[in-house]
Simulated scan of single mutants.
Amino acid sequence: MLERVCHADGTFQELERQWTEQCEAYDEDLAAYAAPHLELAKKISEENPQDSKYGIFALKSGGEYSCLMHVNVARLPKTEGKTLRILWILLAPKYDFEDIERELLARLSAEIVLGALGLAAGALGSDQIKVHLGNIGDRQYFTGFCAALVGADVVAEAAIRGNWLHVKQ
C-alpha cells in the first residue's frame, strides 16, 4: 500500500528513524544516503498543508517502509485525462546494501504499480499512471512486467515508452 508521508502526522519522521537504523547497521549515514532524493522528499513532506496534486509517498507493509517516491498528477501533452506519475523511486537502505532476490524485487515492483493504480482510482483520481524507470535494468525488467499485467487482466494497457512504464486502467 502506498501512503503519503509528511511531517505533520509524523510518518516522515518514522521513515527516517527506520532508515537511519538500517544505515547504521551497515556503518552508513542516512544524511549521505541518496542525499538529493531525501532532501527533496523532506522539503515536500514539510509542506503544510500538503498539495493535493503531488507529494512524497512510501510503500509500507508490515509496519516497514520499503521505498519512497515522488508522485504527482498532471495533464500531459498528447495524453487524455490526468496522469499519475511516479517521478523517482528510492529503495530503503537495506535493499541498497544487500543483494536482493528477484522475487523480492518483483513483489516490490508489483506493489508499487498496484499502489499507484489504487491512488489513481482513488485519492489522486487519474486516468493512467506512468512510472519513470531509473536505468536500463529497470527497463528490461518492466518489459516482462507489462506483459504480465495485461495477461492477468489487471490493466487494459501496459507498455514501455521511452524510459517510462505507461499503464492505463
Rank of each mutant, 00 (worst) to 15 (best):
E3M: 15
E3G: 07
V5P: 07
V5I: 15
C6W: 02
H7S: 08
H7W: 09
H7E: 08
D9A: 10
G10S: 11
G10V: 05
G10Q: 08
Q13S: 10
E16R: 13
Q18F: 06
W19G: 06
W19L: 08
E21L: 13
Q22H: 09
C23F: 06
Y26C: 04
D27T: 06
E28R: 15
D29W: 06
L30M: 04
A34Y: 08
P36Y: 03
E39L: 08
L40D: 01
A41S: 06
A41F: 02
A41C: 02
K42A: 12
K43F: 09
K43A: 14
I44F: 03
I44Y: 05
S45T: 03
S45I: 04
N48P: 02
P49S: 11
Q50R: 13
D51S: 15
D51V: 02
S52E: 14
K53C: 13
G55Y: 04
F57G: 02
A58W: 01
K60F: 09
K60Q: 09
K60T: 05
K60A: 02
K60R: 15
G62T: 00
E64Q: 14
Y65P: 12
Y65A: 08
C67N: 13
H70R: 12
H70C: 10
V71L: 12
N72V: 06
N72C: 14
R75Q: 13
T79D: 10
T79I: 14
T79C: 13
I86V: 08
I86N: 05
L87M: 13
L87P: 00
L87H: 11
W88C: 08
I89S: 05
L90C: 10
A92P: 07
Y95F: 15
D96N: 13
D96Y: 15
D96S: 15
E98V: 05
D99S: 09
D99R: 14
E103H: 03
A106C: 03
A106I: 04
R107T: 07
R107A: 13
L108D: 01
L108I: 14
E111V: 04
A116C: 11
L117Y: 08
A120V: 01
A120W: 05
A120H: 06
A121R: 10
A123G: 00
L124I: 01
G125P: 09
G125A: 07
G125S: 14
S126R: 05
D127T: 03
I129S: 09
I129P: 00
K130S: 07
K130M: 09
H132N: 12
N135R: 12
N135M: 14
I136Q: 15
Q140M: 11
Q140I: 12
F142D: 03
F142I: 00
T143R: 11
T143K: 15
T143L: 11
G144D: 07
C146L: 01
A147T: 14
A148G: 11
L149M: 09
V150I: 15
D153G: 12
D153R: 12
V154S: 05
V155T: 13
E157Q: 07
A158G: 02
A158P: 00
A159D: 14
R161E: 14
G162E: 11
N163L: 11
W164V: 02
L165T: 02
V167S: 01
V167I: 10
Q169I: 06
